[in-house]
Design a protein around this nucleic acid. Structure first.
Lengths: 353, 353
DNA sequence: TTGAAAGCGCTAACAT
DNA sequence: ATGTTAGCGCTTTCAA
């Protein structure tokens, strides 16, 4: 079956034969003329070993290329130095930056990360979870493409610590999410500081918790004439919203705060189509800083960055602490978003587009 | 330090205390009134066990919730049922779909995947590699954001099998890459079948192997008046290329085959800006099927899908076979791309945009 | 300061 | 068909 795309002859086959056995601590011990326990002590800098033997053992270990077998170590220490991360993200846009952050936080501690893409399939989730537990992972990270996606019930009662990333877990769990309200405030404040008087909000579906949170901050800041248009997470909806806003007779907005970069791109395109200038006539802000979108709009998009890698790093630190039975404040921690200024809000020193 | 964003009192701390010890095979054995080896035999369906005891042991194992400790198992079997995947992809666009494919292929075999994002940093790569080897991974997958990225030298001489994914490894290794030539042929054939007479190619930097391959197929198919414009992987370059093509006096193209969806998006936008209709005046094809781009152009973009998940699945099957010392044809296997028809090539039955 | 011995949880000879 | 024993590679009492 693996030959499907190959017309190679049979002797072009490459079957891997395991090389020589790895060096064990016994090899080190005998080469150094000490017992295994002394070798172990010396290598781990534990207990009382004479400086000379300590150095000799270490030198020899290095010479013969000894590396301790983490499996054997874990078996006795009951710590595998691995964690699992369960994700339903198919495209990796959210998961990979976060995982990179997690991984960076854990790497220096020698902890590795099992990535488990569930594709939203409960069967896959269960299988992954079983494999992880059998492999004695020290902890688990649950992450999702939206903060209000309910975690699979199997996560409810685990013998290991769990941290939620980009997901709001139960109150007695540890969760990290972007601070949508702070992010929204950043965006709206920025538009208002620009002197814009009629800021509208074009956003995604109201059943998203993040959408409701951002909209509520927006309303609180703008007040009476706050105008929230809810639709899909698409460019098309962004364009449609512009039609709605500019078709009627009423006063036109001079700023649009969008719920995503994709919506913002639709808004910008539709404005240009109508001959409305961005940012001089209308300033536009996005949300996500998904660079394939935000860098490519004309003009480039000012937006809110959720700092996913930093979030991942915090998640990594938290799971690390929990695995060591160190106390970690539970509940939901909201991580600050940052303002990314490009041309669509007219707030950079660079020449406008 | 973990309290940075929290104002909670100290008793809101959540330090995880490990629950009761997991059930071991000894627990099963004694509960079933047999020896551990009999329990082991019964559970693994090995050797000669009377059907009654076999069932009894299994029933009891299930009742007390016994799950074998994979670490202990691996220690004796010398197979950890884990593989590592080394990636330099920051955004996850290529890596995550592939990893999902890999993971699906391995899940049913109980093999889990360590994800190691190297961020193109040799130090990170080395640390990850050491951690993986210490953890006795059975195999390694190397993947990159371009097929001609040289793998880190540390990969040269490993005691475990290595498979390259979206990366062309040395001739004595196993590599899987998308078939750029077949993909390019798919695109150009399609445009020619539409009856287009002047097809040009707007693509990325020539130092990319994939770019040269696709361009060469394009030239072979189009012949004498083949016109290759090489630039950046950006929308801006796509727009610029359109200026170049339409500014002069010469004959105008009636089709553009683009090296990426982003370039194609720039091309489409610039054509619309000039009042050139897509696809009636000029048909446009992209490459990548990166949906955030290809679904959002106006009209939606016909493009080439590299079938990354399928590629990942094949990579998974290959590493699985190698880990079992089964023969696998080595060398580079090119996986077929597929044609995705949307409106920009005017070849769908749906109403044009 | 060092070494002998036990054991982490499991599998696999070998003996019964 | 079942049990006894040894051992995977390492850490960790405890004795010397």
């Amino acid at each position: 079956m693996l030959k499907g795309f190959s017309t190679q002859a049979a002797d072009d086959m490459n079957s891997f034969d395991d090389g020589p056995r790895r060096q064990t601590i016994r090899d080190v011990a005998s080469a150094a003329g000490v017992s295994v326990s002394t070798a172990s002590n010396a290598l781990n800098d534990i207990g009382r070993t004479s400086p000379e033997t300590r150095e000799r053992v270490r030198r020899i270990a290095k010479e013969i290329g000894f590396r301790p077998n983490a499996l054997a170590r874990s078996l006795v220490s009951r710590r595998s130095h691995t964690v699992g991360i369960l994700t339903n993200d198919t495209y990796g846009r959210l998961t990979l930056p976060m995982t990179a952050g997690v991984s960076e936080a854990l790497l220096d501690e020698g902890v590795s990360v099992f990535l488990c893409p569930t594709n939203n399939d409960p069967r896959l989730a269960r299988l992954h979870l079983e494999a992880l537990l059998d492999k004695q992972v020290d902890g688990l990270i649950f992450t999702a493409t939206r903060i209000d996606l309910p975690p699979p019930p199997a996560l409810a009662d685990l013998p290991i610590p769990v941290v939620h990333a980009f997901s709001e877990g139960p109150a007695d769990r540890v969760s990290f999410v972007p601070d949508d309200e702070q992010g929204a405030r950043l965006a709206v404040d920025h538009l208002m500081a620009l002197g814009r008087k009629r800021v509208v909000h074009v956003t995604g579906p109201m059943d998203y918790l993040a959408v409701r949170r951002r909209a509520s901050v927006y309303r609180g800041l703008i007040g009476a004439n706050a105008d929230v248009l809810s639709g899909e997470w698409t460019e098309e909806w962004g364009r449609e919203a512009v039609e709605k806003l500019f078709a009627g007779p009423g006063a036109k907005p001079d700023a649009v705060f969008c719920g995503s970069d994709e919506i913002a791109r639709g808004v910008i395109d539709a404005l240009r189509d109508r001959g409305v200038r961005v940012p001089s006539d209308v300033a536009v802000m996005g949300f996500d800083n998904w660079e394939v979108v935000s860098r490519q709009t004309r003009p480039p998009l000012s937006t809110i960055d959720m700092e996913l890698k930093a979030l991942g790093r915090r998640v990594g630190e938290a799971i690390l602490a929990l695995c060591r039975s160190e106390p970690v404040p539970f509940g939901i921690t909201r991580m600050p978003c940052s303002l990314v200024l490009r041309h669509s809000s007219g707030a950079t020193k660079d020449a406008p587009y």
